[in-house]
Simulated assay, not measured.
Amino acid sequence: MGTTQLESVPEPKYWHLKTVLSEALDQDFAVGEVLPNERELAARFGVARATLRQALEQLELEGRLQRRRGVGTTVAPPRVGVAVGSTANGWPVESVDGWELVGATEAEPPAAVRALLGTPEGESVHTVRRTRITGGQAVAAELLYVPAASAPGLSPLDAPSGPARARAVLRELQRLVLDGQDRSVELGSARADDAKELDRLPGAPVLVVTTRYFTSTGTAAVSIATYRADTCRLTFTDSLDLNLTSPTA
């Protein structure tokens, strides 16, 4: 076969620089060490700052670097395992796998979530927020959307907001018989509220894990969990359970 057009395209400068920088991170920098500013790095490697910025962004996406507010760009620590869905075919519960309840509100869900739930436009659902803590660090933020029909025994008197309200919503879910769940993963960008909770910049790369929980009558709840993409990688076990890894503190 002849050489394809794609094969004849030279490697972009920033990609070659990314490889050089990756080797420098292994040899010249320690975990947690702050990198020199862009001007110094560009001069050191003899490249334009725009090229350098592209290479740094790619290394951050791959989890080699972290950008921290008030600190700068630092060398990321090694990754350790954080299982996703270790309670297979189970409802979300409190204080399992590091998940901590933050609170609960009632509001109309986003259009994409509404389509998954099958709820009509204008109808509010219970929205439970949880945060996953690993090694003292927040690695994921979750919004769990629960229609009123999935929590029929929930009274307005059962705590109007906060962790107590979230606990009451989860308790109602436990009363239902779970028939199964499905899960999908995609790369996304951190929204402002999730970015703040995960100590990331808005727009930073994240892994969005969407889980639908089913009963005999259809979709009973939908979870949208946002994981830090700079510190998480996907692995698959022999049983095809999905796992994520993230750094220790």
Rank of each mutant, 00 (worst) to 15 (best):
G203D: 05
G203V: 08
G203S: 05
G203N: 06
G203P: 04
A204Y: 05
A204M: 05
A204P: 09
P205C: 10
P205I: 11
P205N: 11
V206Q: 05
V206T: 11
V206Y: 04
V209F: 06
V209Y: 06
T210I: 13
T210V: 15
T211M: 08
T211H: 04
T211V: 14
R212P: 06
R212E: 15
R212N: 13
Y213V: 11
Y213M: 05
Y213F: 15
F214G: 00
T215W: 06
S216G: 06
S216H: 04
S216M: 01
S216I: 02
T217F: 02
G218M: 02
G218H: 02
G218R: 00
G218D: 04
G218Y: 01
G218V: 03
T219V: 15
T219W: 03
T219S: 02
A220Y: 13
A220Q: 12
A220T: 15
A220G: 11
A220M: 10
A220F: 14
A220H: 10
A221P: 06
A221Y: 07
A221S: 07
A221V: 06
A221F: 05
A221D: 09
S223D: 13
S223R: 08
S223T: 10
S223G: 13
I224P: 00
A225M: 14
A225Q: 15
T226F: 09
T226Y: 09
T226V: 15
T226G: 08
Y227C: 04
Y227L: 13
R228V: 07
R228N: 07
R228T: 07
A229E: 09
D230F: 02
T231E: 09
C232F: 09
C232M: 07
R233I: 10
L234R: 14
L234E: 13
L234A: 07
L234P: 05
T235R: 12
T235A: 14
F236K: 03
F236Y: 09
F236I: 10
F236A: 05
T237M: 03
T237F: 01
T237S: 15
T237K: 03
S239Y: 03
L240V: 07
L240E: 11
D241S: 13
D241V: 04
D241Q: 14
L242R: 00
L242Q: 01
N243E: 12
N243A: 13
L244M: 14
L244W: 11
T245V: 08
T245I: 02
T245P: 00
T245G: 09
S246A: 15
P247H: 11
P247A: 07
P247N: 04
P247C: 01
P247M: 00
P247K: 01
P247S: 13
P247D: 03
T248E: 13
T248S: 10
T248F: 08
T248H: 07
T248A: 12
